[in-house]
């Protein structure tokens, strides 16, 4: 038997706390899921950050393949 009888008020508070907790967990899962999908779709993940960077340029603007390591699509496996 519990030491103190629980007041009905605590039940209401618990429902709020648990509810908000579940909402926050679901939101984190949603953002994570969106991130995974967007990265897999190959969306641009870098934005301009006050300084031009090769990795944030559109692909067409780049020099012929091979010159900018890291962004240019890796040469396809020839097999």
């Amino acid at each position: 038997m519990p030491m103190q009888a629980e007041h009905e008020l605590h039940g209401r508070r618990r429902s709020r706390n648990v509810g908000l907790g579940l909402v926050l967990v679901a939101f984190a899962a949603l953002v994570f899921g969106l991130t995974v999908v967007k990265v897999r779709q190959g969306d641009m993940m870098e934005a301009f950050d006050h300084q031009p960077r090769v990795s944030a340029l559109p692909k067409e603007a780049l020099a012929p393949a091979g010159s900018a390591a890291g962004v240019t699509p890796a040469p396809e496996a020839s097999e």
């Binding site: 007041h7 009905e8 008020l9 209401r12 508070r13 429902s15 709020r16 648990v18 509810g19 908000l20």
Partner: peptide
Amino acid sequence: HAYEGAPEAEFRDYV
């Protein structure tokens, strides 16, 4: 009751 007036809100009230 330990408090007056309407009861505190539950989660479903916010929903």
